[in-house]
Design a binder for these strands. Structure first.
Length: 494
RNA sequence: GGCGCGGUACCCAAGUGGUAAGGGAGAGGUCUGCAAAACCUUUAUACGUCGGUUCGAUUCCGACCCGCGCCUCCA
């Protein structure tokens, strides 16, 4: 079996094969850096991250490029409002985006920025104009002539032939040939930021950056183009039109789109007051690993209902996995091997693989590993696991984590960073007790903890339970979890 | 209006033409100085409603109800 996933272009699930045997070239539409990223943005980027990780796990070499849109109307407006340059304005949010992505263990792709490619965009417009696909309007803007590109609408399945122009013409755009024609290049209005280019002053239209940068990085035809579902139209439709008009070749072969999420059953929007950034969630005390697992655990084509209850559930799942890993590595086991356990691990790996190959069914993959963990825990309780059974079980866990990336327990330092950010940005009022608890143990060093734990254990062995419990209480209130097991004391940060 | 997606237990959420993964929560239990962790048992005669196809449908078809998305730069 090979990976199958939904390709928006033909509108069905297809087997994925790259153009060049083992090499995948993929491009994702990244964020417009005008504000802090919200949880919906990250649903998309986690979905694409999972796709990329699974392609690598399946043996492909992946060249993954993502753009940063660092110029658009909103950015120009907001930077002017704040009295800073476009660059100054976007740098802050780009940095935040990269930090947030790292917080969610999203692997960083090769990044390309729109403002670093302005000359190439101007050239692109010139080339389109030569071919008759672009025209200049009176104000110096350039538009793409949709009527000249017969395939227009093939991605979004829209039939523009029968549509009448006129109903929704923007007053600013009276000099377009057709209302549907989209801007390749925008002439500046008075006071607006602009770039000086051979086609005049102005700024790029929204879509052109992706055509220019993806082809520059990946070639005129590449394997995979990804983004949020809202980008299907008009963004990706327009990218296809521009790119294929210019090259006469197919642009991207596979189109991958992640669905929007809901927050507590409702569309996320500022007016509903359920607009959540990653930082908001961490300030409320939720862990990055819980957030990532929740974003990852509903298949990308399903509407994910993002809830606080779901976040708590995911925290349990993460703990279950981490506890199992700790238990397995710490366990003192008899030598030998139990064939059934080997088989259990192999089956889990196989189930995860086939689930992910089937349109990236992350829910099933997660179920497979949790099922294995439950059975292996039971076997551990019953003394049925031998020393040589440990590596395959750990390997299955790692195979899961190659994709889901939640096992490593580094939530506390990540949350600490966001706590510090909040303090520095006048958001003290949003800092929850939960966050303080989660971060609390960061102020205690491992050595200090080890010493306390040893003291507690000594007291316990001396059957001085009063002292032992007192030390436990102290550690607990410092944000630590202490567990006594038959293999010794185990502690971790909350 | 056009195109598309979904409605599964208390909650989240997979899935299949032959009678429902996984997780959470609840209840009971095992283990345990305490506390955890872990495990076991238990919680859908039933998969929005009504028809149809079929030996048999939650799974296919049709209608309807409800929710959601895109259709002017929101991931």
């Amino acid at each position: 079996m090979a990976l199958r996933f939904y390709n928006t272009l033909p509108g069905k699930v297809e087997e994925f094969h790259p153009l060049e045997n083992n090499q995948v070239r993929m491009y994702a539409c990244g964020p417009t850096v005008y504000d802090y990223g919200h949880i919906g943005n990250f649903r998309t980027f986690v979905a694409i991250d999972i796709l990329c990780r699974f392609l690598r796990q399946s043996g492909y070499k992946v060249r993954y490029v993502m753009n940063i849109t660092d110029v658009d109307d909103k950015i120009i407006r907001n930077s002017a409002r704040d009295g800073v340059s476009v660059k100054q304005y976007t740098e802050k949010y780009e940095k935040a985006f990269l930090e947030d992505s790292a917080t969610l263990n999203i692997e960083q792709p090769t990044l390309v920025r729109a403002t670093d490619h302005i000359p190439e965009m101007a050239e692109f417009v010139v080339a389109l104009e030569k071919k008759g696909f672009a025209y200049r309007a009176e104000d110096g803007s350039y538009y793409f002539r949709i009527a000249k590109f017969p395939g227009y609408g093939k991605l979004s399945k829209k039939d523009f032939a029968g549509m009448e122009d006129g109903a929704r013409v923007d007053l600013d755009e009276y000099d377009k040939d057709s209302a549907r024609d989209f801007a390749l290049w925008k002439a500046p209005k008075p006071g607006e930021a602009f770039w000086e280019t051979p086609i005049g002053r102005g700024r790029p239209g929204w879509h052109i950056e992706c055509s220019v940068m993806s082809m520059e990085e990946l070639g005129e035809t590449f394997d995979l183009h990804a983004g949020g579902e809202d980008l299907i139209f008009p963004h990706h439709e327009n990218e296809i039109a521009q790119s294929e008009a210019l090259t006469g070749k197919p642009f991207a072969h596979f189109w991958f789109h992640a669905r929007f999420l809901l927050v507590e059953g409702e569309k996320m929007s500022k007016s509903l007051g359920n607009f959540l950034t990653l930082r908001d969630l961490v300030l409320k005390g939720y862990k990055p690993s819980s957030i990532r697992l929740l974003l990852a655990s509903v298949p990308y084509r399903h509407q994910l209902n993002f809830t606080f209850d779901g976040l708590k559930q995911m925290a349990s799942n993460v703990d279950k996995l981490r506890n199992f890993q700790l238990r397995l590595t710490a366990a003192q086991l008899p030598a030998g091997v139990n064939g059934e356990i080997q088989q259990l691990a192999n089956e889990a790996v196989e189930k995860m693989r086939s689930a992910l190959e089937d349109d990236l069914n992350t829910a099933q993959a997660q179920a497979a590993i949790l099922d294995m963990v439950r059975k292996a825990n039971a076997a551990l309780d019953n003394g049925l696991i031998k020393k040589d059974d440990v590596p395959p079980l750990l390997a299955a866990l790692e195979r899961f984590d190659d994709i889901f990336a939640v096992l490593k327990d580094d939530d506390a330092p990540k949350m600490k960073a966001i706590l510090d950010w909040a303090k520095a940005h006048d958001r003290q009022k949003d800092i929850s007790q939960g966050l303080l608890d989660a971060v609390g143990s960061q102020s205690v060093s491992d050595v200090e903890i080890e010493n306390k734990v040893a003291a507690m254990e000594a007291a316990r062995r001396a059957r001085n339970f009063q002292l032992s419990d007192a030390v436990r209480a102290e550690l607990t209130s410092a944000g630590l979890i202490i567990e006594q097991t038959k293999d010794g004391i185990r502690w971790r940060r909350k």
